[in-house]
Simulated scan of single mutants.
Amino acid sequence: MQLRFLGKNSKVGDCPTLYATDRDTYLVQGWKIFANDLLAQLDLGEGEAAVEVPTELFEHLEKDGHPSGEFRRLEDPLMVLTPGGTYVVQGREVADPEALSRMSIPDYETVVEVSKAAITALLEEPRGADLQHRAQPAH
């Protein structure tokens, strides 16, 4: 798998990163999710994972030819806008050793692969009812 770095939103110790691949996919590196209330809201299949990233990470989609990195709707695979204002992205957990070796991934992060079509569809205005999914605050 060939990777093309699109951008990252770095603060000390935080490095969510966005890559484009030669497989018509994006790799989203983000924080592993440990909150049980949030995990309970996701339907993760075999080999899938979810990561949390700042919303600003997707501004880097402009470097892949998109006029805006601002999502107009949220649906599969971009599952949830959290109460804290971050996105939870669900996809196939990346296991390709060569691709992983080219990334710097702290223990508290992982990488998921999501189709470009699924991500770029979220940049379009929703048709019909608003399909936004939001995480339910913990009770």
Rank of each mutant, 00 (worst) to 15 (best):
E48D: 15
A35L: 06
L122D: 00
T17P: 04
Y87G: 08
V94A: 05
R127C: 10
A40R: 15
K63V: 04
L3M: 12
E70Q: 08
E52V: 14
A95C: 08
P67Y: 07
E52D: 13
L39Y: 04
G84M: 10
D96V: 00
A20P: 08
M79W: 06
D76R: 06
A117S: 07
L78Q: 03
L74I: 12
T25A: 14
M79T: 10
H60D: 12
A20I: 04
G13C: 11
E98R: 10
T120L: 05
Q136P: 03
V89R: 06
G30R: 03
R73S: 07
E59H: 11
E62Q: 13
P137S: 10
Y26P: 02
R73W: 01
R23C: 11
R134I: 04
G91W: 00
R72F: 07
L81P: 05
Q132C: 15
H66N: 09
I119F: 08
L3S: 13
S101G: 11
G13E: 07
L27K: 04
Y26A: 07
K8L: 05
P137T: 12
F34G: 15
A117W: 02
L61V: 05
Y108P: 03
D43N: 11
L100P: 03
A121P: 02
I105P: 01
F5T: 02
L100D: 09
Q132F: 04
K11F: 11
A99T: 09
F58H: 01
R134E: 09
P106R: 05
E109F: 14
N36T: 11
K11G: 15
V28L: 10
D24I: 03
R134V: 04
M79Y: 03
R92G: 06
E59C: 05
T86S: 12
I105N: 02
V114I: 13
T82I: 14
E109N: 05
G45V: 00
A49H: 11
Q29E: 15
K116A: 02
V28F: 04
D64V: 09
V89F: 06
S10A: 13
L6R: 03
T120F: 02
A95R: 15
G84H: 15
I119W: 03
E93D: 14
R4Q: 13
F5C: 08
F5A: 09
D37S: 15
Q41W: 06
T120V: 11
G30I: 06
T82R: 15
L131C: 12
S10L: 09
Y26R: 02
E70L: 13
L38F: 12
G128Q: 06
L27V: 12
S68Q: 11
T55W: 02
T82C: 15
E109T: 02
L3R: 04
T55G: 06
T25V: 00
H139Y: 11
R4T: 14
E62N: 01
A129Q: 14
L44E: 06
V112S: 01
A95Y: 01
P97W: 05
V12M: 13
L42V: 06
C15I: 07
T120Q: 14
A117Y: 08
C15E: 13
I33V: 15
T25Y: 00
Q90W: 00
L38G: 02
D24V: 01
L122P: 07
H133S: 13
A129H: 10
Q29F: 11
E56F: 04
